[in-house]
């Protein structure tokens, strides 16, 4: 969107972020990751994003399919190539870099 000037400079308008966040129950890391990611998404991606939060405890099979080792794990399915981000998303710069979003600052 045009008013979102924090969007990547070189990318078009129809960038739609499909994100999947894998967490484990209510572990401290998971809770932090969800909170941090939500803030980032609201700030940089809104409303062009779709965030799916999956509890790996509930779906253990998915751990193998998605090659999950470290948790919490954020997988960016689109746009561009698939990227994996692990950790509690506390390092915003790294999260943005991982998502391919370049801030002006």
């Amino acid at each position: 969107m045009t008013e979102q000037n924090q969007l990547p400079l070189d990318q078009g308008e129809n960038q739609f972020f499909r994100l999947r966040l894998f967490v484990i129950g209510a572990s401290p890391n998971s809770v932090r990751a969800i909170a941090n990611l939500k803030i980032i998404c609201e700030r940089y991606l809104k409303p062009n994003y779709e965030l799916e939060i999956i509890d790996v405890y509930q779906q253990p099979l998915i751990a193998r399919e998605e090659q999950i080792i470290a948790l919490p794990l954020l997988i960016k399915k689109s746009p561009g190539v698939e990227r994996k981000l692990i950790g509690d998303m506390s390092n915003t710069d790294k999260v943005l870099k991982g998502l391919g979003i370049f801030t002006e600052s």
């Binding site: 948790l71 506390s90 390092n91 999260v95």
Partner: peptide, 10 residues
Amino acid sequence: EETGEYDLEG
């Protein structure tokens, strides 16, 4: 990309 604290629970 490592973005903070994590574990190998996966």
